[in-house]
Computed example of a mutant assay.
Amino acid sequence: MNQLRQVTVLGHPIRVSVRPGSEPGPPLLLCNGIGASLDLLQPFVDALDHRIEVVRFDVPGVGGSPDPRTPYNFALLAHGVGKLMTRLGHHEYDVLGISWGGGLAQQIGFQQPRRCRRLVLASTATGALMVPAGPQVLRKMITPRRYRDAGYAVQVAAELYGGQMRDRPDDVRRFMHDQSRVGSRRGYLLQLLAGAGWSSLPALPLIRQPTLILAGDDDPIIPLVNARIMGRLLPHARLHVYSDGHLGLVTSAEELAPLVAGFLRDEA
């Protein structure tokens, strides 16, 4: 059972969901993609080993978290995440980040080496210094329209997300509109600004945590070569390429959740 609550972090209210684990151990913190509320990852949480506690949160200005008073960057947000996990009673935890949230996850791994035990990086890259998506894809990522207009989301699903969305674009309604909560336009812009100019590329060799990289073989937003670059630069990483697109963590949850659980529980 997911427990929703509001937790004040650095003076700002944050919407948080906690699914308690049935056994003791480090919880898994999920960091979502740009513009997406914590609800988007529900299929992955449902498929993940119920022995593992799962913590999700809405970034300020997204979903159920109100707009921040001032802009922020990944370093400040990672600091706030540490405060959040302390408030929830966790000193050590694992982190999974997808897309934009993968950048935040890398920042947490670098910034909190004694607290972040393991990293899972899904459908993500190294920030400003990466092999970019095509211009048509990047233009559609600048605005949050796909979160606000279900018809438009279906229209662009194949081009943006690839994988299963090429054959079943209407599924994007269920994943992104039936349950997810839409944040403000300002919140989306601040997320874009938080990642502007940021790159993990110089820091990757310094991230010492065991890392699982998950990448789709048909991801228009994050070309697969980016995952291969991260795999070479992270000292303790292994790469798993799956047959799906950018939303594979959700659309292929039944395949990827057991893989993640095995990695986190050191069963692989």
Rank of each mutant, 00 (worst) to 15 (best):
V54F: 07
A261Q: 13
I108Q: 15
W198Q: 10
A196S: 12
L214I: 12
K140C: 03
P43I: 08
L249Y: 02
V182A: 12
V156T: 15
V54P: 00
G134Q: 11
V154K: 02
T70Y: 09
L38C: 02
N226V: 05
P205M: 04
D218P: 06
L259C: 12
A227L: 09
R238L: 07
L38P: 00
R15Q: 14
G183S: 05
V81G: 01
A105L: 07
L41C: 01
R228G: 10
V137F: 04
V55E: 00
R145H: 11
A36N: 13
H240C: 11
Q155H: 12
I108N: 03
Q164M: 03
I14S: 03
L121E: 03
S17Y: 03
L76N: 02
I98K: 07
E267K: 07
V62T: 15
H90R: 14
R114N: 14
L234V: 10
V120F: 08
A128K: 03
R118V: 08
L119E: 04
D39P: 03
L264S: 00
G102K: 06
T251S: 15
A78Y: 06
G262S: 13
V154F: 09
V250H: 00
R148M: 14
R186W: 04
M176V: 07
L160S: 03
E92C: 06
V54W: 04
I108E: 14
A196D: 14
I98R: 06
G64I: 05
V95T: 04
P24L: 05
F263C: 08
Y93C: 02
Q209K: 11
T86Q: 14
G103W: 12
F57P: 01
S200R: 00
L233G: 08
L233I: 12
R228W: 12
I34R: 15
Y147C: 00
D39G: 00
M176I: 04
R238S: 13
L129G: 00
G61Y: 04
S65L: 09
G163P: 07
R185T: 11
L77P: 04
A105G: 02
L160C: 02
H79V: 00
H91I: 02
S184W: 07
P68Y: 05
V250W: 05
V81I: 13
K140V: 11
S184Y: 12
L84R: 10
Y188F: 13
Q136N: 05
A75E: 14
F44D: 01
P169H: 01
R145T: 13
I52P: 00
R146I: 09
R166N: 10
T124I: 14
G109R: 01
H236A: 15
V131Q: 06
R69M: 11
P258M: 03
H50S: 13
R168Y: 15
